[in-house]
């Protein structure tokens, strides 16, 4: 039996609460004079980033080191994948060398789940295509829990390119599992097909949705996607309809929490004025990332021989 984390659905509410409890402990560890515990001493964790990432990769590396695990980092560039080796052979080779867990980021949805079938060590999904990014959702839930305690009934509004966002998908699952009421909002062309089946309301009217939100979560918007969109065609029009502009931010109740997974496109999905509001949790989200990833790695590998 392995303890992979491929989707938020692998955890359920109870699993998320365990992660939150461990996250609080690991945040304490990170604030100590020696911010390190021996929990995963002797374990080797491979960070396999088949798609580029800076913050997630570094966050996982720091998390592993604070648990005393050894880490190796593997990126597509310069790997034998560029010599034509198959993904299956690559990950099986790593495991043959004695790696105890794989952290995987891949541009293809479902790649980590596929890898988990090929290897007998835990696989942690660090973002796969437009599918899921579970550790991002866990750190978002942890950040909100710091401010609001219980997430029950919190009206959570996720705005942007829902269809292509693994962050949106994992957050819808995580927030709804914790009892929040989730609404996703974006232009009709960027709402997911089959979105009706999500545990969330779907709307295209941002201004109406903003009126009744306790949390506003802006997704990173890719410029190319707006420019290719038949409805918008220009960034300016997108910002007018779906950006958290300074004017929209000024209308928000001061208690409303503003979140973004980073990296932010200031001036597109979020105006600088909104990103720097006191209610903006963006930096806290990043800080929680390390502790959440320590919790996830500890649950995957802790206590095993």
């Amino acid at each position: 039996m392995t303890r992979s984390l491929l989707s938020i659905d692998d955890l359920g509410r109870e699993g998320i609460e365990t992660v939150l409890a461990l996250t609080r402990e690991f945040r304490d560890v990170s604030s100590r004079p020696i911010p390190k515990v021996p929990a995963l001493r002797g374990k080797t964790i491979a960070n396999c980033f088949f798609e580029d990432s800076t913050r997630t990769r570094i966050s996982f590396e720091i998390a592993a080191k604070r648990l005393s695990a050894d880490t190796i980092t593997f990126t597509q560039k310069g790997s034998s994948l560029s010599k034509g080796e198959s993904l299956r052979d690559t990950v099986r080779t790593l495991c043959a060398m004695g790696v105890n867990a794989l952290v995987c980021r891949h541009e293809a949805s479902g790649a980590p789940a596929r890898i988990a079938q090929w290897v007998d060590v835990p696989v942690i999904n660090a973002g796969d295509g437009a599918h899921e990014h579970p550790t991002q959702a866990l750190l978002d839930v942890a950040t909100v829990a710091d401010h609001r305690g219980d997430l029950g009934g919190l009206r959570t509004l996720i705005v942007g390119d829902i269809a292509h966002s693994r962050v949106a998908r994992s957050n819808v699952l995580a927030f709804s599992a914790m009892g929040a009421q989730v609404t996703v909002c974006g232009p009709a062309t960027l709402l997911p097909p089959g979105g009706e089946s999500w545990p969330a309301e779907v709307t295209t009217d941002l201004d109406a949705a903003l009126e009744k939100a306790d949390i506003i979560y802006l997704l990173r918007m890719q410029k190319e996607r707006i420019e290719a969109d038949p409805v918008f065609g220009s960034i300016k029009e997108y910002v007018q309809m779906y950006g958290l502009t300074a004017e929209r931010a000024a209308r928000l109740d001061p208690d409303v929490l503003v979140m973004h997974p980073g990296p932010m496109n200031r001036g597109i999905e979020i105006a600088s004025e909104a990103a720097d509001l006191p209610a903006s949790l963006v930096e806290e989200q990043v800080a929680n990332g390390v502790a959440v990833r320590m919790a996830v790695l500890y649950l995957a590998l802790g206590g095993t021989p």
Partner: peptide, 20 residues
Amino acid sequence: DIAFYRDDVQSAPRVPTGPT
């Protein structure tokens, strides 16, 4: 809480029961 400092093999990772 010694959960993160244990040296014994367990079937599941132990979650701390209280703060350090």
